[in-house]
Amino acid sequence: MDPDEFENILNGDSDTASETHLARLIRTAQAPATTHELAAEDLAVAAFRRSVVLGSAQRRRVFSRLTPLKVAAAAAAFVVVGGGFTAALTHAFARSGATTRPSVSPATQPKTQPNSPRPQIAPSKENNGPAGQQVPSASEQPTNVASGQNKSKKNSKGKHNGQGKGMLVTPGQVGSAMPTSYHGLCLSYSKALTDLQGASAPTTRASKLQTSKQFLQLAESALNRGMTVPEFCSMILGTKVPNPSVPGFGLNSSASTGDGNGSGSSSKTGGQPTGARPGPSGSGNNGGGGGIVSAGVPAKLP
């Protein structure tokens, strides 16, 4: 018997006499299902039903498990995108503030740049008046402070009223609210002081710095907060800025009683208010101090 004949038998196509018995066996083996064989059908259907129910429940569970993940992913995406947008905005504002500030006068700045991150100072009489008390120069001449309203020097015992009143920015907010230009000014100021520590004569940098409009603005801001410029700059920079009023500072040997917040009274030493840094006019005076700073307010160099 050749393979093709076997194939025919297996396929049920054989009708020759010799294969009849084998073909009959095969056909019998391939007979339709009997009831006996299908007795377990209901059990199989029950298993099928259970798997369908379990499958749908599992799908629901998977979905419910994924839901918090989806929410978390959406929240993370929102934070990332929103944070990036905010950072970009903040950066843009900081840049615009740093670039435009020098061209704006302090008097008009709050009006012209309402969105500026510069600390806004509520106008008050107390802020303007006594501020000058902190800046008496050694030569008893009115210092050229930015406020320009300090004409009287008799209130040497008067309270300094600029200590925090009306200020919208607290020291804790320095990093985010201070104009970035102050940072640079303070850096320059700190460097100038460092230079002066070892110098016998005021440096050009120091002279230029303290006569600049921006520095006066910085000094005014410091005064409005009841601080000295070194303290103010220390707050902005986060590092200690040398205080020329401290005994032992290269140019200043005179003691200072100024507490920096303007609340203390100035004591006189040698007829001069010591609340102010010696800073007398004229280079070479008193060791060439140059009077770069006096109690936080720049004294104009000659």
Binding site: Q30, P32, A33, T34, E37, L38, E41, A44, V45, F48
Partner: peptide, 11 residues
């Protein structure tokens, strides 16, 4: 499913 079962289970 019953159709499938009845078709393949006997074999």
């Amino acid at each position: 499913f019953r159709v499938i079962y009845r078709t393949y289970h006997p074999g």
